[in-house]
Structures are given as C-alpha cells and as structure tokens.
Design a protein around this nucleic acid. Structure first.
Lengths: 302, 302
DNA sequence: CTGAAAGCGCTTACAG
DNA sequence: CTGAAAGCGCTTACAG
C-alpha cells in the first residue's frame, strides 16, 4: 500500500498540517528598498539561512519606506500561520512607530534588523556608529586633518548613525564637526557627485572625505577627477558597504564592510531561537575596515 | 455582534480558506544567485508586481545553480497550495533538465524567466542575443574595427547568447570572430581585470571590447588604465546590465539595459493570466543601448 | 499495537 | 433570507 502511495506521487498538504499543528515552518519577511545594496544583501543572508534551517519564507516588500497601516500586512502573514516575523525594513523617519502598538499582542516572535536598539525588543544590527568612527579615525591616523562627510539621507537611522560616528571621531581628536562640513546625499552615485561639488565650495581646504556608501564615493571621486584633484594626494576617501566593485575604482576604495549578509542569517537564527522559547541575545555585528589605495598614508605621498 | 468581532482583532485564517478554496493567492518563486545583479533585480520586479496584484510570495533560493532533485522543492511549494510558480533561476548547464519530467503533471501553471525559449513552455525573457549584436554593431558604427569580447561563464545561457551576438555582428560585418578574441570571465570585477590582461596578449591589436557585464567592464577598464591605455582613444568599451554606477566609471560606460526588473513584473502578469486560464503570450523584452563616453566615435578622437 | 473518530477554522451547498 | 451540516486534508487522542 505504501508503495502505491509513493508511486502516485502523493504529497501531504502542508496547509492542513499547519492548520492542525498551529505552526507552519514558515517565516514572514517584511522588507523594503530591495534595489538598495544593504536590504538586498540582508535578504540574501535570510534566504540562505532559512533554507538551511528548513524554513520557508513568505516575502512582503513594502512599496516605500512609509509603512502606513501595518495591520493588513501583519494580518496577511499571521493568517498564514507564520511561526515568526523578520522586520528587515530600514528605519526611516519614525516608520517603526506604527508597529509599536501591535507589538505587545503579536502572537508570534518578531526580530528587527538594522534598527535602533530598544529595551525588550530583539534586534540584530550592525554598529553603524562604530563604523563611522572607524572610518574617520583611519583617515586621521593616516595624516589627514580636514575630514568632511557625505552622508546618506539623514532620515535613515543608519545614515544618521554614520554621521554621528564621523562627528564623534573628530570630537575625540579635538576637532569641530560643523554642519557645513557634511553634505547630505541620497545614496545614489549621482548624489555623491553633487555632494562633492558642494563640499568643495563649503569646505575649501578639505583633504579627506568619509562617504556613507561606496556608490556615492564613486560619484564623489568622479567629481574629484574631473576637477583635476588627485586621489589620495589631494583628497582621500573612505566609503561604506564594501561592494565588490569598490576594489576596482580608480583608485581602489578604502571602505567599511558592514556584513549585512551575516546580519540576515543571524536574524534567522535569533528568530528560530525565539520560536523555540529560548532567550533572545542582543546581536550587534562589528563592521570591518578594508584599507585600499584611496586612503594611503599622507606622509608617503609627500 | 460584528462590531465586537472587529474590536477583538479577529482575522480569518487564510490557511483554512486556502484549504477549502483550493487556492491561496500565493505564488511560489524559485530563485538562485541573488547576489548577482540580474536575479536580484528580477526578484525586485516580481515582489512589487505581486504586491500590486494582491499575491503573496513564497520564496525559495537554491543554494547553487545545480538544481539537483527538484521534487522536495516543488512539493514544498505545492503542498502549500501555491497558485502558480515562477522559475527565476538562471539557466546554467542543463540545470533545467531535471524539471522537464515534472512539468507535464504539474497541477499549477509555471512561468520561466531568462531562459531558452522552448515550444509550449511559457517564458518571459530578455533578448541577450540581440543585446550582443547591438553592442558590437554600435562599436563598429563608431569606427572600431578589432572588437574583442569578455564573456560571462559560458555555462550560463545568457553569457552564451551574448557571445553568440558578438560573433553574429562581426560575421554580418564580414569579420571573423576567432575564439582567442574572446576570454571567459566569471561575472566578477576581478575576472574582468584578468580577462583584459589575457586579451591584450591574445589579441594585441584590439581596439574595442564588448564586455558581458558592467562589473567585468570595470575591472577591464581598470587594467587598461594601469597599462596606460586611454579609453576610448586606445580601447573602447561597451558593457551590459546598466548598473547605476556605470554612469560614473572613468570614463562613463556605454552599456546595454536588459530591463530585468520589468522582466520580473511581466512574469508575474503572465503567471496570473495563466492562473485565470488565459492564453500565454510569448514575452521577449528588447534590451536598450545606453551610449556614454567609453565608446565615443573614433573619428572625433583622432 | 491498530483503527475509527474528533477537530484545526474556514466555505459552500442545502434544508428550513 | 437565515442557520445548521458537511467537508477541505490532515493530526492527535482515544477506544478496541
């Protein structure tokens, strides 16, 4: 009898099983901005880790970063009996506020990625603030003294943190970090180009720039090249994200690797722990400095 | 009574409903290589379009491109009552073979993305072959005469098609396209660098290169710059993919936009049509040439 | 140890 | 038009 069943290609309905068992071996993933490198890499880490642990993924992408009414979204996931939720939406403005009231009576665990730490809420995050400090301290240690900043959109928590890191590192070195030494970009290469143009006006004796992502750094270096500035002799650069291309920029770009991929997989682990009623751990990943030609020591260049 | 129900935050179980209705408003998506730009963009198009049409997505990422045994994968999707399946796995080697036998008795429609057209199988694809021809004809029309090629891994159908386009365009112009004028890369920037190095040895009087993606083009141009070759005076370039950064390469890169995003959304449309028992359409998207500085007309440079 | 019954939370067709 | 019953395909607890 069993053989015949197998031969017929019979497969049990996971749906009926989930209905009975009140669990589905499925995780809900809420994401936004998959066209950006960060969220896309994070999703990458999530998918491979979930696959490995035997969980299916129900994927929801928000149309933008304003979450609006989360109820339909959450209900759609919950009504499909997900065992837990990964909130992989960049924190922009106060787009997490709307979740706050649903949080207490959520029937399944939820893990937040890339977000502000808050008491009692499981978060897996990368330390953008430390990354900013790291980038600027590197430039200072290489002998640069006038370090400007091109930030991401400051509504983004990540961008604000990287900028705060820039300011903190300068302050520790006894330097001021006035607002006109920081220009806000949009993450795009073209915005980096425009920001660099502005920065040259607002901060004429600038000798180094910490740029909040590699793509803007590319645009900024493009502008520098157009102006006949030599990198790093006249202007040094440190980026952020460590996209593979940055090793082949002209010159190759010093950058910070935030390990977003790993953040995704850690978040899946964390969520599965919570599903099994284990204690949450606070997971803060350390970014890593990758030194290349765009920030060569100043002395050797003289 | 209704009010109380609403106040209690009651939500119907989509699971039970699916079980009854034999449909779930959920599409299964099988993908692989999300760290590559193409598959990632395609997924992007899929998510936004699915959201728009009111479908949820069940996402599966293969660990590699060798599909292996598809049965567990398909069963996992089918047992969750997906209404249809999107096969967004790049065609590498004969990794679609294993699907062939399951195809006839699949209880739900399936749409293939980025794949070889085959009779009777609904496919949404971008014309890589036409893109290759377009790239090389552009270089020829700009006065370049010795056009080499850096291909992607030739196991990939897309890479093989782009190379075939290169060969065809040369042949139409009455030129030979010997194999030593084409070096195979891996899609990565570093492989583009190495391929360019090799190409300079194997094809010393080369004056232009069609590179199968923008990232390898970046590596190739990096090598050219290191060798003191001027782009495009000594060596012109055309890339493929149109990543946003390519507008800011030094010099800005002429490239082909394959509209992978749109491919994803078209595929969702197609699948939904099939679910509603409408006739499949053959959808082949035309790539678009984007002209920039790396392929300026040769005459104006002399 | 095996087998029939009850129930997960819905929808649909049918009786009153 | 309203309301109780049957059933989607499973699993689990219980009787034999």
């Amino acid at each position: 009898v069993q053989e015949i069943i197998a031969d017929m290609g019979y497969q049990p309905s996971a749906l009926a099983r989930s209905l009975i068992q009140q669990r589905s071996a499925t995780l809900g993933v809420v994401t936004a901005g998959l066209n950006y490198i960060g969220p896309s890499r994070t999703l990458n880490g999530i998918t491979s880790q979930a696959e490995e642990l035997g969980y299916s993924l129900l994927l929801k992408e928000l149309p933008g970063f304003d979450v609006g009414d989360v109820d339909p979204l959450l209900n759609s996931l919950l009504s499909r009996q997900v065992d837990g939720i990964l909130w992989a939406v960049p924190e922009v403005g106060d787009n997490r506020r709307c979740l706050e009231e649903r949080l207490p009576d959520l029937p399944v665990p939820i893990v937040f990625l890339t977000q502000r730490q808050r008491p009692g809420i499981p978060v897996v995050t990368v330390d953008n603030y430390a990354g900013g400090i790291m980038a600027v301290q590197h430039l200072l240690s290489r002998g640069y003294r006038k370090v400007g900043h091109i930030s991401g959109p400051l509504e983004w928590w990540d961008a604000a943190q990287r900028k705060a890191g820039w300011r903190e590192a300068l302050s520790r070195a006894g330097q001021a970090a006035p607002d006109q030494h920081c220009i806000e970009g949009t993450w795009s290469t073209s915005s980096g180009y425009r920001a660099m143009q502005q920065l040259c006006v607002d901060f004429p004796d600038i000798d180094a720039v910490f740029v909040a992502n590699d793509q803007m750094a590319l645009g900024a270096m493009y502008y520098a090249a157009q102006q006949g500035l030599r990198v790093p002799q006249d202007l040094a650069f440190v980026g952020f994200d460590s996209i593979p291309e940055s090793a082949y920029f002209s010159p190759s770009l010093t950058t910070i690797n935030p390990h977003q991929n790993q953040m995704g997989s850690e978040a899946v682990h964390q969520l599965v722990r919570l599903i099994h009623n284990e204690e949450p751990e606070v997971i803060v990943l350390d970014p890593e400095l990758i030194v290349r030609d765009s920030s060569e020591p100043r002395e050797t260049l003289m």
